[in-house]
Design a binder for these strands. Structure first.
Lengths: 197, 197
DNA sequence: CCTACCGATCGGTAGG
DNA sequence: CCTACCGATCGGTAGG
């Protein structure tokens, strides 16, 4: 009995996330969408107001997932390196658990109209600041190297966790935890062998 | 006299790279393109065979730039860490020098038809292998840590250099060399302060 | 949720 | 390189 039917609106969002991520927003027609749901193109408008509403809600949903995962970490009292491990894990997990909407988020946000577009830009800043604060804290308390460029470090971390949407395969060899630990190990300790060997 | 006119075909490619990167492939119409060149939509077909030809050539051009930058490094005799620095610099420089076509490359290749699509997938593998070989060499000769996961390391490096297309601004505060050195410093030495302090 | 339809726009072509 | 046009398809609506 896994046949419990989701609300129609939710089904539409799920299919839209999948098609937008596979083909892109502009290459997906409302008729494509309707076809996957077994209805006619015009019937979609009984449930939604328009195509862009779908994009807006997918993008907003994804950014909220990131927010919920990361901002509860903000004031947690942990050593900077452990905090970074946990943040990277949560960040990657959001991507892994929402491959479709995360892909739409990273790929299609430029097609939003002015207002939601500006919200994404503002949101990106908050995430940037989250990682900069995390790094800055680690530098201040001596966990991280004193000569770190905080912006560059945050940028490198974000590159690692964001780029996962292009290559990660849920159900594959690596769990989100595996990826996070591998990346964090390398970022924290570096690739170089110790000087003494 | 910087008014030397480029060949029309090249102008079309330049404008197409810019519009495809700004708006996306499907959201750019042939009439948009023609308008920016001061001609009518139909007139484009005196110079090109179709819209997808433009996408194919932009994508192919970008991948060739990466090839030329990286593959001459393949058999150069350098310590692995220096080789990595140089590879990252060249990789980032290709992105920085070709922001438009690099963006199209990373963003729009999924819209290619079967054959050029498969070429991009195959190309990506060669780049992946390039970085894995570089890391593996460093592990073998003791430059890099013996416990490195080669695939993960290559993946992390690629995340850093590829993601630059989303944030780098040519002519801004940082040169491609700056970014490459910052990233390589952090990747090679890690973020952690030394154990003794 | 369907049928039937709207005006607009798409990539591309014919003929000059 | 332009004018004029093609069939196809787009997002969306009216009326039921």
């Amino acid at each position: 009995m896994t046949e419990t039917t989701k609300p129609r609106r939710e089904q539409i969002h799920d299919v839209a996330s999948r098609l937008f991520s596979e083909r892109g927003y502009h290459a997906t027609s409302m008729r494509d969408l309707a076809g996957q749901l077994g209805m006619q193109g015009g019937s979609l408008y009984a449930h939604i107001s328009g195509k862009e509403e779908l994009l807006v809600e997918i993008v907003r949903g994804a950014s909220q997932q990131f927010d919920e995962a990361l901002f509860s970490l903000r004031d947690v009292n942990l050593p900077a390196d452990e905090k970074l491990r946990e943040a990277m894990f949560r960040h990657i997990q959001v991507v892994a658990d929402n491959m479709d909407s995360a892909t739409v988020f990273f790929h299609e946000w430029k097609h939003l109209s002015a207002e939601p577009y500006a919200q994404v830009v503002a949101w990106r800043d908050t995430i940037d600041i989250f990682y900069r604060d995390l790094v800055a804290q680690g530098v201040r308390d001596g966990t991280f190297r004193a000569d770190l460029d905080v912006r560059a470090a945050a940028n490198l971390i974000l590159s690692a966790v964001n780029w996962t949407y292009t290559w990660y395969r849920p159900g594959g060899r690596l769990s989100p935890r595996d990826v996070a630990e591998q990346f964090a190990d390398m970022l924290l300790s570096g690739l170089m062998a110790g000087e003494l060997q």
